[in-house]
Amino acid sequence: MIKSYAQLRAETAARDRSLREKVMSLEDAAALVQDGDHVAIGGCTVSRTPIAMLWALIRARKQDLEISRSITSTEGDLLFASGASRHIQTSWFSQGIVWGVSKVMRHYTESKQARFEEWSHMSMGLRYRAGAMGIPFMPMRSMMGSDVAGQLADIKPFDCPFTGEKLLLVPALNPDVALIHVQRCDAYGNAQIDGLQFMDGDIAMAAKRVILTTERIVSNDQIRRAPDHTKIPFIAVDAVVEVPYGCAPHECYGLYEPFFTHLDYYAEITTRDAAGGVREYLDRYYYAPKNWAAYLELLGLDNILSAARRGRSIYDV
């Protein structure tokens, strides 16, 4: 499962890393993802989740995607229920603690229709970091002695060659595609991320291809005025899609908070009937709308305004 270093280098060498425009539609970006690809999802839990790109992948009827993410929320339910994925590697998987244990996650994993492969949070981070560093593994000091480690086939206990201490080696993750949503980037893919960065920088540098969705596209001049704010460089980016409210109903730092009323509604219909509720949700919000604007219309202007007012309030103090 670890890519050979020769392959990793060859894949990077083969990419067009020139300063060129990469702006495209959600649908064209979705076409860059192949069935069976390992897709890493940026953000964490209900924060800066690239919902619009996942929405486009599910609408394009992608199959058998291998998913990885730091922590997985409602998007994991939808990937399982739509058949887009049957395997997610992550550290925690449920809608969010205030909504209880996800009935959809339970339905698909307990019936073995799909697999939730559990890694510790830090091990996921170190695996992406190893991938970003171009090395095949990372040593770490947690997970030892636990049943989390006991269930994982791809880890190795290791005695440090310098000190003799017991360590655990975790394998690098080099995703085929990284999906990352940002507050702003330019047409070349220089991305600025406000607030919490999660694992996105490492995920981007570990991946073979990076698809950025962004709240807005700014000029390259604006990027060059504050290059210290660039968190992902254009050389690593393959597609740029401008999608306002591209995380809805999840959060995008400083712009909008989670759409709580909508997430309560989602919890309610999936708690009542996991398989039926999630199918109803997919039909209504994923398959029926003719485009992203129509999806946002369904979420409702009052919900959008509430999320935006709360989101921007982070800068009030």
């Binding site: 925690w92 339970r106 307990e110 559990e118």
Partner: peptide, 16 residues
């Protein structure tokens, strides 16, 4: 009987 949400950072915190 029940698949719970998992470790998150719990394993790392308790290990260290």
């Amino acid at each position: 009987k029940i698949r719970l949400p998992g470790t998150g950072g719990g394993n790392d915190i308790a290990s260290l």
